[in-house]
């Protein structure tokens, strides 16, 4: 199979921070808004480079979303940054009314997403945000898989006209995609072609999916690995083609079963080509404190868990 090297451990939020500076360099209309977590979300680089385009809102996320929508009217491109839970769940109605329904060019950037936030515990570990954001008409949902891809996704979000939710995490994770990659919104990324099973993954779990494919290869199972960095609009064609080829699908995400990538894929398969499928996701429960690695293990989001689900789905394959 195609091999991917972990070039360095790097947090996706740093990819976002660097991408935001690049977006600001490329376009003078880019504005960044923060709610007292500027350093945590890595917006400090932008704040330093473009102080006149940085807006500190204080701990008031609802007001921040409204200000961003108001700014967008004049052609500004506001990037609203914060912990994913507090820029989605806390302000769902604000996003619904003045960003999604009003169809404004606002970028909602959620850092510290998922259970790998770790020690802060469940109050801050959103695993519902993809469900919330993808449910909104007009909203594009991006979930890049490593720091390099988060950089590229941030610049792509700037170039895209319309509401975007960009989701990324806090801990240092393997960096394996290209530094100067093209990020095409809505296009699945084929990481490894295979014949026996399709592993369709997003975010931090793409690396785990590649690790799983390696382990499966050693057992003589050929796994296709597809990175879905755009949850919405979903590249249904890539998913249907792969499912038809392999006849078995496993989805992987750091999100609840309900409403995440898995549900989007299941819907696609049910409507187009019913295929045995298994989910690697968190089953209807909240997170807890611990290290990111402990979280992935405890919530069964590791490569070993993906391998197990692959075997389960292969057993169901006709």
């Amino acid at each position: 199979m195609k091999t991917y090297e972990n070039k360095k451990m790097k947090d996706l939020r740093s990819g976002f921070g660097e991408g935001l500076v690049e977006a600001g360099n490329q376009n003078a209309d880019v504005i960044a808004l923060s709610a007292d977590v500027t350093g945590s979300v890595k917006m400090d680089g932008f704040a330093k480079a473009f102080p006149e385009r940085f807006i500190q809102c204080g701990i008031a996320e609802a007001n921040m979303v409204g200000i961003a929508a108001g700014l967008s009217l004049s052609g500004k491109i506001p990037f609203v940054g914060g912990f994913a839970e507090f820029v989605t769940g806390r302000v769902y109605d604000q996003i619904r009314q003045v960003v999604a329904y009003s169809n404004k060019n606002v970028k909602i950037c959620g850092s510290h997403a998922g259970v790998t936030l770790g020690e802060d515990g469940a109050t801050h570990q959103t695993m519902e945000d993809i469900a919330l954001m993808k449910a909104l008409p007009n909203m594009t949902v991006l979930v890049p898989c490593d720091a390099n891809q988060t950089y590229a996704a941030t610049v792509a979000a700037m170039k895209h006209n319309g509401p975007v939710y960009l989701r990324f995490g806090r801990p240092k994770m393997p960096t394996f995609t290209d530094e100067n990659q093209e990020f095409v919104i809505g296009k699945a990324q084929m990481l490894n072609e295979g014949n026996d099973v399709s592993i369709i993954a997003t975010g931090h779990l793409v690396w785990e999916a590649l690790e799983a494919a390696k382990a499966l290869e050693a057992e003589g199972i050929s796994a296709e690995v597809i990175n879905i960095h755009t949850i919405k609009p979903l590249d249904t064609e890539a998913i249907i083609n792969s499912a038809k080829k392999t006849g078995a699908v496993v989805t992987c995400e750091e999100h609840l079963f309900n409403g995440g990538l898995g549900d989007s894929v299941a819907q696609t398969l049910a409507l187009n080509c019913p295929t045995p499928m298994e989910y690697v996701a968190v089953d209807d429960k909240f997170g807890e404190s611990g290290t990111p690695e402990q979280m992935l293990q405890n919530y069964h989001l590791k490569a070993v868990d993906i391998v197990e689900k692959v075997k389960a789905v292969l057993a169901r394959k006709k």
Binding site: I67, G70, L71, L73, D93
Partner: peptide, 24 residues
């Protein structure tokens, strides 16, 4: 210029519009 009716949101929107006017 903006949907409204879910109460309490228009002042924030107006602040954003007002800041943009100052920037411009």
């Amino acid at each position: 210029r903006m949907a409204s009716g879910s109460l309490g949101q228009g002042l924030s929107v107006a602040i954003g519009a007002a800041i943009a006017k100052k920037m411009d």
